[in-house]
Design a binder for these strands. Structure first.
Lengths: 145, 145
DNA sequence: CTGCTTGCAAAGTGTTTGCAGGCCC
DNA sequence: GGGCCTGCAAACACTTTGCAAGCAG
């Protein structure tokens, strides 16, 4: 919110609405959902504007997006906002390829892999940025037909 | 190739072409590239047919696709084909968010995470299925401006 | 005022689908 | 021959972009 001013970026209704929406939920929202919710706070905001706001805020490091296989990317704040703690520190996302459910996994679980990749390949993994795919427990149970 | 017959699936020019293309390369190919290469072996194959063939073969477990952030999915064989060893056993994919390069990572590197997720959450991770995002060594060097 | 931001519409990319005809088995 | 497979075109979902007008600083 105030982050924008600090970075010499303009504070516009659209950007404020996007930030408010993300700060007001603990879910991962996709662009469509953000558009719908932002519409409430800033009537008339356009889809494209939301995408542009998300891109700008992403560049500033205020928010992060996660690519979900075969559907829309989801966004969430990456830094704590004044008072609000909607911004979960670091976490990855598991997506079930059967039911589509997205499960959060704590960053600590992924740390060993991050370290291994950094050491072995010099690759700086961003565990948040893409969902890890697999089959969740529930769907494995269903699979025994 | 013969896998199709075993599974009571039809062997058509289109499917044969797709399999030949994948067996004839050690790269990860996206749908467009497969269409282009399949065109050589089976002139007239349609884009949609290739997608359908890839879906069918994927269901049979013959090939795997990996979702790459912000661009086309890449496909490769998941089982060894008669004589050909283009099918690397198990491996994940690292994608650099800066330069876009896709790096293979051996399955053994990912095993600890697979086991951890299975134990803790009952989640059966398919490490091949989505690219892991981050910054590769080269781009980290470039970043020191 | 200056120029970054927005709204709008249209284009783009990657993938899927409905339908009629064709080919595998 | 029956039914799965194909070609075609159109639809689809998500995201990006060109342009003129608008508002922030």
């Amino acid at each position: 919110v105030a982050v924008l001013r600090e970075r010499h970026e303009r504070v516009t209704p659209a950007r404020r609405a996007v930030l408010d929406v993300l700060a007001g939920t603990d879910h991962h929202l996709n662009a469509d959902e953000i558009v719908a919710l932002a519409e409430v706070r800033a009537p008339g905001v356009h889809r494209a504007t939301v995408y542009r706001a998300l891109a700008t805020l992403g560049d500033l490091g205020v928010l992060t997006h996660t690519h979900v296989a075969g559907s829309a990317a989801v966004y969430h704040l990456s830094v704590p906002v004044s008072g609000v703690e909607a911004a979960v520190p670091v976490h990855g996302h598991l997506q079930c390829t059967v039911c589509g459910a997205v499960i959060d996994v704590p960053g600590t679980t992924l740390m060993p892999l991050v370290l291994t990749l950094a050491t072995d390949l010099g690759f700086q993994l961003q565990p948040e940025h893409a969902a890890l795919l697999g089959v969740c427990g529930d769907c494995q149970s269903d699979a025994r037909h």
